[in-house]
Amino acid sequence: MAIVAEEARPVAGPGRGPVPRPGRSRAGVRRSLVRSVPLVPAIVLLAIFLLGPVISSFYGSFTDASLTGSAAQGSSFVGFANYAELFADPDFPKSILLTLVFLVASAIVGQNVLGLGLAILMRSSSRFTRGMVGTFVVTAWVLPEIVASFAAYAFFNDTGTLNTLLASVGLEGTNWLYATPMLAVILANIWRGTAFSMLVYSAALQDVPPEITESAEVDGARGWQRLAFITVPMIRRSISTNLMLTTLQTLSVFTLIFVMTGGGPGTDSSTLPVLAYQEAFQFGKLGFGTAIATILLLVGAVFSVVYLRALKPEVD
């Protein structure tokens, strides 16, 4: 770095002098302030549109705000009433359970296992197969969510592709979206999201040196042993990162479920984001919906903190 002392300039040029220690001297403080000016637009945007809703979510969950009626004009503080009502409402514990089922089945098991399986199979398949299968899997992921949701809706519909296929082999399907709504949205979310895990694991597997698996092969380790004792431990960092990211993504899935089942029948497929929407916008209970949103935000925050602490992504 060029060391040129020229403090009189209003805008401190980059790299003048050694790394400043803010707080050491007034000049240092000023220089540090000037240097952080470009951060201001980002801080303003994030404060208004991300931090703002988070704070108003916490506050709003303690009020009786609603979209219609007397409470729509002015809302008043009601303490923990929304939360008390929330836990008394049978839909809420049910929704928590549905969200957990959705997370575990579609993200933690479905997308991760299938993604890892695809990545492993692709290493021992022909280039043509790899390219074609990869294209289909990634296309389902790249499609805009509303289009993917319609495609999944059509597939599982009573008169949809799945039942046509079942009929062609002599089986009688059912109305999947009504009879087994959770199964339908779980399979749809696996279809939609597996590409991400597949890409992450493909990249991770490329970093496993082939000599190690080869030497294990020479020592007589079978295929599944090499997978369980060598490959998986070597990519464990990617696995935990990916588990965390797919969990967070799946926690906020809304459109897929909203389009396929609308949370129904009844609330049989209302995961927390869908329930928050229904309560706030369909039943007009804004405070109720906000309380659900607050709980979701807290769950997301806990996951994020665990993720950041456990994996310590590099920030420098």
Binding site: L50, V54, S56, L251, F254, L296, Y307
Partner: peptide, 24 residues
Amino acid sequence: PFLYGVLFGTCLPITAMMVPVYSL
């Protein structure tokens, strides 16, 4: 702190926020 805050922001479930965002 800024970068950790930013990383934290990437993890927030945005769909969970839409009800408070609407009120805001």
